[in-house]
Write a protein that binds this DNA or RNA. Structure first.
Lengths: 110, 110
DNA sequence: TGGCTATTTGGCAAATTAGCCAAGTTTTAA
DNA sequence: TTAAAACTTGGCTAATTTGCCAAATAGCCA
């Protein structure tokens, strides 16, 4: 991967990394604090190698950072603003209903 | 697709829809106002059927809405907050550098 | 009506991604 | 050292996604 990614590719990799149910679940779990890989394997239920690969995708996208301590590798969010980000995601896609007209959202929209 | 998607699946489909370079480009272009499919084909350069499929993914995710007027179908953002959303994306992935420690972001972080 | 334009849909092959197992690496501890 | 635990990486197949072409649909106008 090139050292410097264009702003656009960087956005795409963040969005792609988070656009997978397991990876979104992992990232949400880390909102409560760091966890090691086997904690996350227990949470997710996949093979540990699969979890590890998901984690490396999230880290490559810059969403997570990792820190090795002893035998364990602890992952945590790279940025504290992930909760706000999720709220933004929820607002980009307004509540469905009459779906073919532009909806003016309530005032909680970012 | 089930009528009611869980909050989680809805998030995943928004993120997945936007996690493709062409679809992100299209969505960004629509920040300046609605465009019809052939405008977007000119912008993107892909076959029009490809563009149409990208658009239907974005619409299914709830990111875009469409409106038919005469021969044309005009697409536009479902929510005005997409600019804010992009800023959020940029902040979830902090500027890379010393990448294995948690970075405390500057004050422009959401 | 018939023809023309804009768009969507079906179907397919190529490319990418997912997830498992097995093997390799790193660190701790006996 | 040797062994064991926690991860990562390589390699493979299965599943999904992409993007093209061709055909179908919808709306406009002569």
């Amino acid at each position: 991967m090139p050292a410097i990614l264009s702003n656009q590719s960087k956005r795409v990799s963040v969005l792609k990394a988070l656009g997978h149910p397991t990876r979104l679940l992992i990232t949400e779990a880390l909102m409560h604090g760091e966890l090691c890989v086997c904690d996350l394997r227990d949470l997710v239920g996949d093979d540990i190698s699969t979890v590890s690969k998901h984690l490396s995708i999230l880290r490559a996208a810059g969403v997570l950072v990792s820190q090795k301590r002893g035998l364990n590798v602890f992952y945590s969010l790279a940025c504290d603003c992930f909760g706000e980000f999720l709220r933004c995601v929820d607002q980009v896609c307004p509540p469905s209903g009459s779906s073919s007209l532009k909806i003016s959202l309530p005032d909680n929209c970012c």
